[in-house]
Nucleic acid binder design. Sequence first.
RNA 1: GGCAGCGUAGCUCAGUGGUAGAGCAGGGGAAUCAUAAUCCCUUGGUCGGGGGUUCAAAUCCCUCCGCUGCUACCA
Length: 573
Amino acid sequence: MTRYLITSALPYINGVKHLGNLVGSMLPADLYARYRRARGDETLFICATDEHGTPAELAALDAGQDVATYCAEQHEVQKTLGEGFGLSWDYFGRSSSPQNQELTQHLARVLWANGHLEVRTTKQVYSHAEKRFLPDRYVIGTCPHCGYDRARGDQCENCTRVLDPTDLINPRSALSGSTEIEIRDSAHLFLKQSTFVEPLRAWIDSHENDWPNLVLSIARKWLDEGLNDRGITRDLEWGVPVPDDIGDGLMKGKVFYVWFDAPIEYIGATKEWSDAAGKPDSEWQKWWRPERQSDVTYVEFMAKDNVPFHTVGFPITIMGSGENWKLVDRIKGFNWLTYYGGKFSTSQKRGIFMDKALELVPADYWRWWLMANAPESADSSFTWEHFASVVNKDMADVLGNFVNRVTKFTVARFDGKVPGEGDYGEDEKLLIAELDKRVAAYAGYLEDIDFRKALAELRAIWVAGNEYLTKAAPWTHVKTDRTKAAVGVRMGLNLVHLFGHLAWPVIPASAKAVHEAIMPAPEVIAWPDQPMAQYLDSLEAGHEIHPPEVLFAKITEEQLAEWKARFGGEDAD
RNA sequence: GGCAGCGUAGCUCAGUGGUAGAGCAGGGGAAUCAUAAUCCCUUGGUCGGGGGUUCAAAUCCCUCCGCUGCUACCA
């Protein structure tokens, strides 16, 4: 049986992530990982913070910390928030780890040995004030085309023209404002991507049927436009050092570009995981260097901006190594989640961030709404009104109220115990047939990693429970035919039990609470494998149940108004 | 400017050649076990505009309009 390796795109270190980041990679990866575990599959779910690069250095500068301290702190912040959202990582690593450094250097060495890297001289902007090289975007000056005086070295934001830092009039450092800058030659390693076009195309074509259109079209666009060789080193201090033995001795003091080492951290974090557990190297290697590629099914989750690096950049690193590293099997890409149709924006404080979100409502509310409305085929839009109406209706009314009405009635009329009288009849058979079909459809959508449809099916399963209960109407029968009422209640309780199992991958904390209405819940709530006829008649007569407190408090009009005002609704820009 | 995606009921979205769909919201009814929750029935769209291909187009082609994003050292 194949093992499942699951990775989520690495959240960048410079601050708390917003809900768009969450829904685009970490949350769907968690849902899928939980589903695999529920089915009993051997599963490893890996994530990490992406810590290198100039933005991290600048954020640290802002915070008045050295970059290592800053990253260590922010890593803990992101780890805590992820756990708050129920993200069930087997390991949440750091791209700055020694393990990643070792692996990154190893892969660079074999690429160098295989002739896939070459040294080229490039022109870089050096700032005397900062005593460092500046990335293009951190050089500002007057645009030669439109005269805008705050144009960036990569592009003028006013006239949108693409620029080179040397084009700027009166160039200066965006960090200090210093004009003491000069253009210096600097040697860098380039990955000869152009030689990989054919194998990449063949590989991508082989996934014609199991990758989403979004992923295929982005990957092919890059190949069609011609792959440029790509610089994989930078003149920075914070990063994985380039080893002396590659690059003809010209790489002293340089580090790898963050996009080179970040995907390698998928492997690095796996090694961090096995090292932390005191396990031998064979433990992480069985995931990344399996005997046969088919021993591991590797699934990656990411937003669409990340697709090129996972369909082109990282695969070239793997292919070019000539070693038997595991290549990704399935890539699930997401579009953008928008906030009232506009972009989530950290700088403009527009949208909702993970820390604030958890202060408002439990994580499962977000998990449900985000995955039920995941931007799978197109961008999707968050609005407070929609969020409140979906959460109140689906979770509180359809699921929560079902659990509540069945369990409360059991206490009121059947002594809080599963009644054993009577046999299932025609109504129960119809329900069982419907649920056999729906549970299979729900599983099918999860296998296909088609989340919106999966959650719509899960909701339909809950609705089927309400429909059944209305038809069975034990509250009516209990007055005249206690046995008939008992049948309805017994089925109702079995449905509660079922719902707890089916909902666990999506809303784990709530599913646990539902499960515990019937009996104590295990760490991993297993998938119901039996046919429904058997499963829905599995609770023992006389078993005592425990009605939960209100499972899902509804979002009130007052809360809605307050949150809209606090976070900015449609009027905010 | 170039490129990509999108534009289907009031709202959020399915549907990619064969008589327009779901959920929510709206309207009517049933029930009263329950967080006034649930269940049944129902109103509602010339599928952004125009042109073309086809026996047949929301679905393929062209064009126009609108929205969003990307445009490579930005993670």
